[in-house]
């Protein structure tokens, strides 16, 4: 059974339909990518999964639970973390406080301290800057903080929205390496990305979104070699 299953999802902003009845699934342990141009509805899909945006029709099932009937703030405790587009770290809190917010629903202090140690090991720069106000971090560091904050909830699945946005090529490579490591450590990943080449090289399978519809899907390697994908999204 799929860990996360989206069926016939439709989302509207007012009268404008952003997502036009899409279906896809994410299996345990996979990296699944949603690719597509700006405005294709990728971010909307993630926002609907974690309840930031309401759906008009369709269903989203996670571990057998209907997420469309689950209030947004209860989802993280079910093992799903979301690294939102634009990072949305708490600019006025310190790095450490941001990480603590990531573990907001966890009550066992000892376990949280252990996760914090793990996050610091993965992102040593965050430990160096733990007392610093998060708004003063560089873009790449903020992305690391957003990812570290999500990991603090010890998620089974992590949704990532445009992790490479606005980062230097060096940082992009580093971030993608880390995403692969997180996945190897046992976390399922659903990732939305405009950098199709990069994301297809780490994903297991991918769905191509165009103006609210899935127009193509398949194993990432196949899409990477598909002529129309190459033309439209890889710039070849």
């Amino acid at each position: 059974m799929a860990l996360l299953k989206v069926e016939n999802l439709q989302v509207f902003y007012g009268v404008i339909q952003a997502v036009k009845g899409i279906s896809f699934e994410v299996n345990q342990g996979e990296i699944v990518a949603l690719i597509g141009a700006n405005g294709a509805g990728k971010t909307t899909v993630l926002h609907t999964i974690t309840g930031l945006v309401p759906a008009k029709a369709g269903s989203i099932t996670y571990n057998g639970v209907d997420l469309l009937k689950t209030p947004s703030h209860k989802i993280v405790a079910m093992g799903m973390a979301h690294v939102p587009e634009g990072r949305r770290i708490f600019q006025e809190l310190t790095v450490l406080e941001n990480l603590q917010m990531g573990a907001f629903t966890r009550r066992d202090k000892g376990e949280v301290a252990e996760t914090l140690k793990m996050v610091y090991e993965r992102f040593p720069r965050l430990e160096e800057r733990k007392k610093q106000v998060a708004g003063t971090l560089s873009g790449g560091e903020q992305q690391m903080l957003a990812m570290g904050r999500a990991l603090m909830s010890k998620p089974d699945i992590i949704l990532m929205d445009e992790p490479s946005m606005g980062l230097s090529p060096l940082f992009v490579t580093e971030i993608f390496d880390i995403i692969q490591e997180i996945n190897k450590a046992g976390t399922t990943v659903l990732i939305v990305e405009q950098n199709a080449k990069k994301v297809l090289s780490i994903a297991d399978c991918a769905y191509v979104l165009e103006t609210g519809n899935i127009i193509m899907d398949g194993p990432a390697q196949e899409l990477l070699n598909n002529d129309s994908v190459k033309k439209a999204y890889l710039g070849e």
């Binding site: 309840g51 703030h73 979301h82 939102p84 809190l93």
Partner: peptide
């Protein structure tokens, strides 16, 4: 801290599990 987080970004606070 949840109060500070909500005042800065309600959506992100919700993603952390904060009941806004």
């Amino acid at each position: 801290k949840a109060m500070l987080a909500v005042s800065e970004d309600k959506g992100a606070a919700q993603l952390m599990g904060v009941n806004v």
